[in-house]
């Protein structure tokens, strides 16, 4: 069985538990092993490199060394994915940072571990035909806006994944799950990440733009692949309707929750909001009614 070193990241232990459990459930259904990186530490996220790039590469690099015993490292959080991959690039050509790690008992062998996101890993599985026969509960008629955010694809030199301006991998996964991906404008626009804690007004403006784009494109739900994006998009929708011109509320789910639903994974692991589940079932019913009439 193919096994990845799994790097959950800090948010998946706390505010994004459902992203963690649904990710594990999806990969389990696909027959791909996820082995948690032992004693993993924070990747540094979007903040550590602002203080000191070499320190950021060293703390992210620690995880690469720990993962290399298991195999290629897969991260559900877009921010973790980019921090780890950036560190891998930096460690490749900076022997001083490698020495720092070595002094602390962590020997990094260049090229020893590849970093990918869970979107990429799931998409690879799709290309290998590993979904075949497994989509037993298709998300018929559900219109999904796939939201990639910044760091799954940018900067392309480091991410090395999908088209940087119009990525399609998550759209294809949604299609495979029986859903209908919508074409929309804000797939890779920034949600403001942790700046929600710095400049709320600015961040809410950015979020409003993303959500309105999804609503205008006729999406039922937005699929996210990052706990920070998810939190920013979910929070304060009613408030944004009052004060920021949000057109309507729209549910935000993790792409793994949708994939898992189609794969008939355990409901408890998926932990999908009851209202979203009702919407999914409603769309399925509509699809069946159309079939009967036709």
């Amino acid at each position: 069985m193919q096994t990845y070193a799994y790097f959950p990241g800090c948010s998946l232990e706390t505010s994004a538990k459902e992203y963690d459990t649904s990710t594990r459930a999806v990969f389990d259904k696909l027959g791909i092993g996820l082995k948690e990186v032992p004693d993993w530490s924070c990747c540094g996220s979007s903040q550590a490199h602002k203080v000191d790039r070499d320190m950021a590469a060293a703390i992210a690099g620690r995880n690469l060394v720990l993962a290399s015993e298991i195999g290629d490292i897969v991260a559900p959080c877009a921010s973790c994915f980019m921090s780890l991959k950036e560190a891998a690039v930096e460690l490749e050509h900076d022997s001083e940072i490698r020495d720092t790690l070595k002094e602390n008992g962590l020997e990094y062998l260049p090229g020893s571990v590849r970093v990918i996101s869970t979107v990429e890993a799931a998409h690879n599985a799709l290309e290998k035909g590993m979904f075949e026969g497994k989509i037993t509960k298709p998300l018929k008629n559900l219109k999904v806006a796939s939201y990639y955010g910044c760091l799954l694809v940018r900067p392309p030199k480091i991410a090395q994944f999908d088209d940087v301006e119009n990525p399609m991998s998550m759209d294809r996964l949604m299609e495979a799950a029986g859903a209908t991906p919508v074409k929309w404008s804000h797939k890779t626009e920034c949600c403001g990440n942790a700046y929600i804690m710095v400049d709320k007004d600015m961040t809410l403006n950015l979020v409003r733009n993303i959500l309105n784009a999804a609503v205008s494109a006729g999406a039922d739900v937005v699929a996210a692949a990052c706990p920070l994006c998810h939190m920013n998009l979910v929070m304060r929708q009613p408030y944004m309707m009052q004060k920021y011109g949000l057109k309507s509320e729209i549910p935000i789910v993790y792409f793994s929750q949708l994939l898992g639903t189609a794969l008939n994974a355990d409901e408890q692991d998926l932990d999908i909001d009851g209202e979203v589940m009702r919407l999914i079932n409603k769309r399925r019913q509509e699809a069946n009614e159309v079939k009967e009439v036709g």
Binding site: E13, S41, A58, I97, N104
Partner: peptide
């Protein structure tokens, strides 16, 4: 929250020569 086991060595990464 969770604290990692190897905190001691981890913290040394913050005081590296280069950093």
């Amino acid at each position: 929250g969770h604290q990692i086991k190897d905190l001691n060595n981890f913290q040394k990464l913050f005081n590296s020569k280069k950093a």
